[in-house]
Simulated assay, not measured.
Amino acid sequence: MSQPLGFVHSSFPNHVCHLRKALYGLKQAPRAWYSRLSTRLVELGFKGYKSDTSLFILRSGLDITLFLIYVDDIIVTGSNSTSIAGLIAKLQEDFALKDLGPLNFFLGVEAHTTASGMYLSQRRYISDLLHKTKMHEAKPVTSPMSSSTILSKHSGTSLLDPTSYRSAVGSLQYLSLTRPDIAFAVSKVCQFMANPTEDHWSAVKRILRYLKHTINHCVFLHRDTTFTLQAFSDADWTSCLDDRRSTTGYCLYLGRNLISWTSRKQRTISHSSTESEYRAVAQATAEIVWLQSLLSELGISSSSPPLLWCDNIGATYLAANPLFHARTKHIEIDVHFVRDFVSTNALSISFSFLQRSDCRYLHKALTHGKVQFSQGQSQYPRTPLEIAGAY
């Protein structure tokens, strides 16, 4: 390290400046900001959560105040508006805060509150993305990926400049926060970031055309007092042509609300469809355990254990029967933690031959009719308000 130009001291040429305050943009600035803010919150009586270090809670009698941090963007909510106003006033004594009022827009997500719940939409983000990629005048399509599309890292000719591809796919990843219907398609095109081809770029443009068709769709969170966890898991065995790994898809509901979903390629190759389904069950179980831990810290409990639905009878037997060692000893030990939860009745796994297709679009491309069928089975409501469609 050396002294900056114009600030070199002639008597101490080998000395450096002592930084008294973290500068915005430095690598350690976010950590210093979080340390300063969290210390002040603890002084005010807040308690940090182990399940989510960005969440703080303050309990005062029957009142509760939640403080959620994302770098320098903050959401404050609670049961007593007077307590929230007092908290903001105290923080303004130490920090340059700006109160933006009720939650309407946060990190690219629009929030629209009604008497029955809240709509979360990224409509403005989609519009900006379509203009950025010059796809705002493209012809809309009714599905994010064609069911006949077969993508491989060897298909098509390499793009001369992959920058636009990587930028668009990165934006689509963030858009998946409120759009589970594009999760699989986005996960698929993310696998070719190293060397994208014309075929891969065509798949990205189809996703953008689908977003133009469904720009008003969003996630709806009901005002609900039911806190039962229910999950659906599924897998597409050896779906990747390049390495023959399977694709996991699962989604979780808290009461009627869809709160978590994932579409992800598995890390290892499965020898059978039962093994791939069991790995999907294990990943969904891990998400359930984390959500239970978060709800427990919030003081929310359920009278019944979480229910995990799986459409593979072998995977349900494997989760409950420890006698299949000869056929499953090659599966990693950490996957078998599912059995511990099942044996202690902390988790219930059920088989359904006619499983709802909540997570079907999370592990494979569907036709237009099946996309609509999945949306209908997931009970995604439509609203007559300015947000024209909802998930």
Rank of each mutant, 00 (worst) to 15 (best):
Q191R: 15
Q122H: 00
S148G: 09
C190Q: 04
Y119D: 12
F106P: 01
N195E: 10
L103N: 06
K153P: 09
V109G: 02
P196M: 13
L160A: 12
L107N: 10
L208Y: 10
D199G: 11
E137T: 11
T113E: 13
S116G: 15
S176N: 09
D128K: 11
S146P: 05
G108C: 07
S202R: 12
A183L: 01
L130Y: 10
T142F: 08
L107V: 12
Y119L: 13
Q191K: 15
F105I: 02
S202T: 08
F192M: 07
L151Y: 01
A138G: 02
L129C: 11
S147F: 07
G170S: 05
M135A: 04
S146M: 04
D199T: 14
F184A: 14
H131T: 08
P180C: 12
R124M: 15
T197I: 06
T178S: 05
Y165K: 12
Y165P: 15
P162C: 11
P162I: 05
F184D: 05
T133F: 11
T113H: 11
L177D: 10
R123P: 14
P180G: 15
F192G: 00
E198G: 12
L160I: 07
K132W: 12
I207Y: 00
L120G: 01
T157P: 08
T142N: 09
M118R: 08
S143R: 00
